[in-house]
């Protein structure tokens, strides 16, 4: 891929990011209510509110406010949280590791399970096993994430007690660590890992169901190509066909899928973190919404949108390396 095309792609992504940031700014300003009235103490006078408006620059023309806000954003300054009284960047950075830990574990498992499942389904298309897997993945993918989470909790608490599973199989459902116990070293790690099983399982189940559904179609398309039939006709072994012919042709589709899944990893899951009480970015966003803490809501939104644009850009740049047909400078 030519250098100028790379530059064009990056510039396009940057322009898109700027549009998104503007959209988000516009959304806040379209919303009813004045941030200043939310910030002042209930006993404040109209004068106090006015002073705060001046301090925040809310009395300036919209264009000036926009320029200031965008300028601060360029310096990596997302403002200060109304509720937490710390910089928004700090609040996001504090919550990110929790979301990242859950996200990385689950995206690895999602692809490790979903891709082979989709491939197996594509190879044995129409057989009973494929049909069962199709129904199962459709049902899991149609279930809301929070419902899957609650179903897992119900099974490992209520269900485990009802059918009498051994105590070690009754997994902890809420929080990151067992409350009231201070553990160190390996014991602490094992405690956290046990708490992580259900959230990771939820994200993996929903993710793998979606990936398998997509991978099945993707692999089925590739397996139907003439080049695969030609390779078989030449007497190439099944394994050789898979490695030499199918993998390369299926890869671009999987890369696109990965790029679509990746932003969720860095942004955290609102539902899983909410159900399992993990203090990540999703939960931070939710509590910010409840507290009308606009700077944090916006910061999280910008962070997520930035991740989506970055992942798409990365896929755009990687795809031509995998697929010569995409190397033309036409688009």
């Amino acid at each position: 891929m030519s250098f100028s095309l790379i530059v064009r792609r990056v510039a396009g992504a940057a322009a898109l990011f700027w549009l998104v940031v503007t959209l988000i700014f516009a959304l806040v300003r379209m919303a009813p209510g004045d941030p200043a009235t939310l910030l002042v103490s209930p006993s404040a006078t109209a004068d106090d509110t006015e002073r705060l408006r001046a301090e925040l620059g809310l009395d300036r023309p919209m264009a000036v406010q926009y320029a200031r806000w965008a300028g601060a954003l360029l310096r990596g300054d997302l403002g200060e949280s109304f509720a937490l009284h710390i910089p928004v960047v700090r609040a996001l950075a504090d919550a990110a590791p929790v979301s990242l830990a859950l996200g990385i574990a689950s995206i690895l498992l999602t692809f490790a399970i979903g891709v082979p499942l989709g491939l197996a389904q594509a190879m044995w298309r129409g057989r009973a096993a494929d049909r069962i897997a199709t129904v199962a993945t459709a049902a899991v993918f149609a279930a809301p994430t929070f419902w899957v989470a609650l179903a897992l909790v119900a099974f490992f608490t209520y269900g485990a007690a009802t059918i009498g599973l051994p105590a070690w199989m009754r997994l902890p459902a809420f929080g990151v660590r067992t409350p009231g116990v201070s553990l160190t070293g390996w014991a602490d790690l094992i405690d956290v890992a046990r708490h992580a099983i259900l959230p990771v399982a939820t994200l993996t189940a929903v993710g793998a169901a979606g990936v398998a559904r997509y991978a099945r179609t993707n692999f089925a398309d590739v397996l139907g190509l003439d080049l695969v039939r030609a390779a078989r006709a030449r007497g190439a072994s099944g394994a050789r066909v898979l490695v030499r012919h199918v993998t390369g042709n299926a890869l671009p589709g999987l890369v696109v899928l990965f790029a679509l899944t990746l932003p969720g990893v860095v942004a955290g899951s609102v539902f899983v973190e909410s159900v399992f009480a993990w203090p990540g970015l999703g939960r931070l966003t939710l509590s910010a919404i409840a507290a009308r803490d606009y700077p944090v809501v916006l910061g999280a939104g910008i962070w997520y949108a930035g991740a989506v644009i970055a992942a798409n850009l990365a896929a755009d740049l990687v795809l031509p390396m995998l697929d010569p047909r995409r190397r033309s400078t036409a688009t």
């Binding site: 959209l23 988000i24 379209m30 919404i289 809501v297 989506v308």
Partner: peptide
């Protein structure tokens, strides 16, 4: 522009506002 923001995020922001 709207496609670049995950739909759930847009929904959450709007619901918050």
């Amino acid at each position: 522009t709207v496609l670049a923001v995950p739909r759930l995020v847009l929904l959450l922001v709007c619901a918050a506002l």
